[in-house]
Every structure is written in C-alpha cells, then in structure tokens.
C-alpha cells in the first residue's frame, strides 16, 4: 500500500484537529474532497469513466465480451474485476509490488457486487447455458492519495452508467445451429440499470472519532478503518474492517450509521451529474487527463 511517513508531532496535530471536527485541509469529519467525474473518456471501451477525488485519480474501462455463462447460473452474465496498481501512482507498485493491493481491491469489489439486486445480471444473458455477456471491469489507479475504495466505486458506477452493450440477434439455421448476429447500428444498444449499484464509504478511525474520505496523511494516523458499501436505498451490501487494529463494538455501530448516511447522500448527486453530462451530448467539451 502506498504509505507516507508521518512524524509524531504531525500525528498529534491531525488527531487533535479531528477531535474538534476540523481536518488539515479544512474539511469536517464527514466531508468528501472535491470530486471530478468524466465519462466516456476512452473510445475503445464500451463504457469508461475517470474520477479524481482530491489527488486520487482513477480510470475505469469496461469491455463487454461474449462468453459462456457459469454452470451454476446458466441464465446470467457476470462481471470480472481487475484492479491494476500502475507504477505511475507510486514507485512501490513497480513490478509485482502493486499486486497484493490490486488483489485485495478486486476481491472487495466482488464482495460488493455479490448480491442479486446490485446489477441485473439476467439482462446480460444472450442464450441460457450457451452465451452471455461478460463485463470486464478494469480499474487503473493513476494517482493514489488515500480513499481508493470510494473513488473506485464511484468510477465504476459512472462507467457502468456509461456502458453501452450492442444488441445481438440470434438466428437459427435449418440444422439447429445457432448464430449470433451483432447489430451494426451503433445506436442500437442496451443500457444497464445502475440505480442499485452501491457506492463504498470508507471510514477511518482517528482518535475517538471517524472521518470520511481520509487522505494518505490521515490514514497513517489511524489503525483501523471500516469499509461499507451502501445502495441509494440505504441497503448495506458489504462491510469489512481493514487495517491491523481492532474496533470497539459501539464505534462499529456508530461508523455503520455514519457510513449509511453519507453513502445514501452520494448517490442522488452522482446520478444527477451523470444524467446532466449525458444530456449535453456531443456538444460537451471533453476535459480528459490534463484537468
């Protein structure tokens, strides 16, 4: 994990600040940093989004491919997550250095989406037992400044919203062989319903309080954090304690409550923003990577 060295005095300064609900960058304990979202940034993907949250930069590309459904669920498609910690973000990730973090992040993503209502996987089915859409969700960390989980989940939601899967037509010949025909009209495509896609809120325990959207500096002051993924209705789809410390049961309950409240508030503005961006259509000026 990308870490920073923090001196004892600096730690005390940060912890006292958090105690008084004032963080180093002037935020309150439940405030996010400035966030920028842009969708449709990579033309070769079926859906993509770039999210920058403070100094954390994340790019998500989604590619849809036709695959074979899993034998246990023949009438559903599936998602594959892969998180790449590029050495661009920090030299620590060079070679196999980022692998451990990447596996941890992608495993948590599988957990977050491990339920029936997050995404309608049945809509990804083309022909039960034979063909289905496989969505490869590839996450690239371009810059790390803490709170990777939250930024990642928002980027994934935006990219899924942006995803357009071409419609397919199955034709059968006389011998019973099936053939898949892809619609060649680029506007004849299927959209995903992302309403129930959860967002992750990570809460860092600092002193006796917890903060949302911790920077790397703040993260270095905390021993344990709690990851909560929340849908727009307030349903919790995944909880996980991260880090080497332990937490008091009461503080866990407080943190889940805060997580649910904060998480619920993220969804409405996010959807509004995505819809607004889409309504601009082709006239939208693309910002790209040099924002």
């Amino acid at each position: 994990m990308a870490t920073v060295q923090v001196g004892e005095a600096e730690k005390v300064y940060i912890m006292h600040g958090v105690r008084d609900d004032l963080r180093v960058d002037g935020r309150g304990c439940e405030d996010y940093r400035h966030m920028e979202i842009e969708t449709d940034v990579v033309s070769n993907t079926d859906g993509s989004a770039k999210v920058s949250l403070g100094q954390t930069d994340i790019l998500v590309g989604i590619k849809a491919e036709i695959g074979k459904p899993k034998p246990m669920v023949p009438d559903e498609g599936y998602l594959e997550f892969f998180v790449d910690c590029s050495a661009n973000a920090t030299p620590e990730f060079e070679g196999r250095g980022g692998e451990e973090l990447g596996v941890e992040l992608s495993n948590n993503l599988y957990k977050v989406f491990n339920n029936k209502h997050s995404l309608d996987l049945r809509s990804l089915c083309i022909c039960p037992g034979e063909h289905c859409w496989v969505l490869y969700v590839d996450v690239l960390l371009l810059q790390c400044d803490g709170n990777l989980f939250d930024a990642m989940s928002i980027a994934i939601k935006a990219a899924l919203f942006n995803t357009r899967i071409p419609k397919v037509h199955i034709s059968e010949d006389e011998e019973g062989g099936k053939e898949i025909e892809l619609s060649d009209d680029p506007y004849d495509c299927m959209r995903l319903n992302v309403e129930n896609v959860p967002c992750i809120v990570t809460l860092c325990k600092i002193g006796h309080r917890h903060v949302v959207d911790a920077t790397l500096l703040e993260k270095a002051c905390s021993v344990a954090s709690l990851l909560i993924s929340v849908t727009h209705k307030g349903t919790v789809t995944c909880v996980r304690k991260l880090g080497g410390g332990s937490l008091d049961p009461d503080s866990i309950f407080e943190m889940t409550e805060t997580g649910k409240r904060v998480g619920k508030m993220v969804h409405a503005p996010l959807m509004e923003l995505l819809q607004k961006e889409e309504s601009l259509g082709r006239e939208r000026t693309k910002v790209g990577f040099l924002a």
Binding site: N114, K116, T231, T237, V239, K241, L247, P249, F253, T256
Partner: peptide, 23 residues
C-alpha cells in the same frame, strides 16, 4: 478487551439487522 478485530459482511442487509447480526 471487548474489541472487534475482524468484521466481514456481504449480501444485502438493512443497517438495523446488520447491527443486530454483529451483536
């Protein structure tokens, strides 16, 4: 010490039932 050192949950749960489940 009455400290929770590990917590993992998945599925879809309401907050109140999650809290009850942890207890």
């Amino acid at each position: 010490l009455n400290q929770i050192s590990g917590l993992q949950a998945d599925g879809e749960m309401r907050e109140d039932s999650l809290t009850a489940a942890v207890r």
